[in-house]
């Protein structure tokens, strides 16, 4: 559906001759609600990993803006006034400064929480720090000494004709800054994905080792149950574990003596469908007290 809406908006944007940023916005807007819902779900299940993903995604977008600026410079024969990326209105010193502060702090938080076993995150953080020095200087000049900034101070510290200088003009230099910042960040994110496990799985099975949690997470399936719905679990697979990851469910079970008990399970609690022939409490029904989400762990999915 998002593809259809995106396509329709792009077509409309082209017909109406919208500027490039308008067409780009038309492509992105239908995806925002989907991304938002997915990011919220990932935050609940994977915690900081979702933030890591969002930061990496936004930085890739930022990198694309710098790439677009380079293409525009090539097409416009180096005319800076006509080469501000797709969202040109955002190409100003204030936005650059606050964006980089946000990215730098974000990587810093990730480093504090995850850095001990993610060397590429360290590389990204040090690259972001070098980039940050440049932007603190540029922002200071822009705010307090704008005449100097306009007269050429905008080249910064390492830009060509800057304080220390280098062979690279500012747009090319900042493309390089972003490259050495984004590439390690993407690799760090990729590395981190090999250590991710579901937080509800951890709460349900706190005795599992990290490697078991990671392996089990990769086998999890998800079902949702509307509030008030009662399910006859007789056709559910025996031996599987069901973990409540959202809402609350009432489980009615019957023990070997035939006594029936109903208990309410909330987030992080689990129940198991008994394998035929084994003794123990048998589940008769599962009713969602609230709209609920269950994670299904296949038999032997966790080495308990």
């Amino acid at each position: 559906m998002a593809v259809s809406i995106s396509s329709a908006l792009v077509l409309g944007g082209i017909i109406e001759r919208l500027p490039l940023w308008g067409i780009a916005l038309a492509v992105l807007i239908p995806w925002l609600p989907i991304w938002w819902v997915d990011a919220a779900w990932q935050t609940r299940h994977y915690g900081l990993y979702a933030f890591f993903g969002a930061l990496t995604l936004f930085q890739l977008g930022h990198m694309m803006e710098h790439s677009a600026e380079l293409v525009q410079l090539f097409l416009n024969h180096g005319n800076l006034a006509q080469s501000h990326g797709v969202f040109g209105v955002l190409d100003n010193e204030v936005v650059h400064f606050y964006w980089n502060v946000g990215v730098w702090l974000g990587i810093g938080v990730l480093l504090y929480r995850l850095g001990s076993r993610n060397p590429w995150l360290w590389v990204a953080f040090f690259a972001a720090s070098i980039h940050m020095v440049e932007h603190v200087y540029l922002y200071w000049l822009y705010i307090f000494h704008q005449d100097f900034w306009l007269a050429g101070g905008w080249t910064g510290i390492l830009g060509k004709s800057g304080i220390l200088g280098s062979p690279l003009d500012r747009p090319y230099l900042h493309f390089v800054y972003n490259y050495i910042e984004v590439v390690p960040l993407v690799i760090a994110f990729w590395d981190q994905s090999r250590h991710v496990y579901d937080r509800y799985l951890e709460r349900a099975f706190p005795m599992l080792s990290e490697s078991d949690l990671v392996a089990a997470t990769q086998q999890l399936q998800r079902i949702t149950i509307a509030a008030g719905t009662t399910i006859d679990p007789s056709n559910w697979h025996a031996g599987r574990s069901y973990i409540v990851s959202k809402g609350e469910v009432a489980i009615t079970h019957e023990d070997d003596s035939g006594e029936r008990v109903t208990s309410a399970l909330g987030s992080g609690q689990s129940f198991e469908m008994i394998v035929a022939g084994r003794t123990g409490s048998r589940i008769l029904s599962v009713r969602a007290i609230q709209a609920s989400e269950l994670l299904i762990l296949p038999r032997n999915g966790a080495k308990t």
Partner: peptide, 27 residues
């Protein structure tokens, strides 16, 4: 980047050499 720097130089205001490091304490 090397190709662009060599083939597409930018035209923009630049400071005189003596003024470049005027605000070095800020840096």
């Amino acid at each position: 980047v090397t190709y662009l720097q060599v083939s597409v130089p930018l035209a923009g205001p630049s400071l005189a050499h003596a003024d470049l490091s005027y605000y070095w304490p800020v840096a």
